[in-house]
């Protein structure tokens, strides 16, 4: 299918824009873009790994849930995509991840303690908790005009 060749990366006014098909093949390429950028910004490798995982969890959720959960939703988006807008503000790396898939009430979701889930040997439900643990700010909003946007922020000074 060559999904990777459909990934579009543009730089404009200090921001990096990435558009990728909603497909599992896109995840590796998104991670590569994010890790390269985080290293350029100056994050140490331990923090780069955390940013990489947080973004991967966000994008994996879109691939797995946003467009697949409801057939009636999918037909409205015959060519669904994940859109990332990345920039820095002072010492903060700001990553916005948007899609037009099914809305998810992110803010109200409380998956509980990660270690408790692990000790209970639960096989899933870690993604959002990992984002919250590894990023300094996690904010979700959704509206009919712009779709769903997840804003992840990592501060360089805290690293």
């Amino acid at each position: 299918m060559g999904h990777e060749s459909n990934i579009d990366i543009k730089k404009s006014t200090g921001r990096l824009f990435v558009r990728a098909p909603v497909h599992g093949k896109s995840l590796h390429h998104i991670r590569t873009v994010i890790t390269d950028l985080a290293r350029q910004v100056g994050f140490p490798e331990d923090e780069v790994a955390k940013i990489e995982m947080a973004v991967d969890e966000a994008c994996s959720n879109i691939v797995e849930h946003a467009y697949n959960a409801d057939r009636n939703w999918t037909w409205k988006h015959p060519d669904p995509e994940i859109r990332l807008a990345i920039h820095t503000e002072a010492d903060r790396l700001i990553i916005q991840i948007a899609d037009n898939g099914k809305r998810f009430d992110f803010s109200a979701y409380r998956p509980g303690n990660i270690v408790d889930r692990i000790r209970a040997m639960r096989s899933g439900g870690y993604g959002i908790a990992i984002m919250r643990q590894f990023m300094d700010e996690v904010e979700y909003k959704s509206d009919d005009q712009n779709g769903n946007t997840l804003r992840l922020v990592k501060c360089l000074k805290k690293s």
Partner: peptide
């Protein structure tokens, strides 16, 4: 090179 939570969670399930 990388492992995500989907993989880690499933590995826990297989270990169990």
């Amino acid at each position: 090179d990388y492992i995500g939570s989907a993989g880690l969670g499933a590995l826990i399930g297989f270990a169990k």
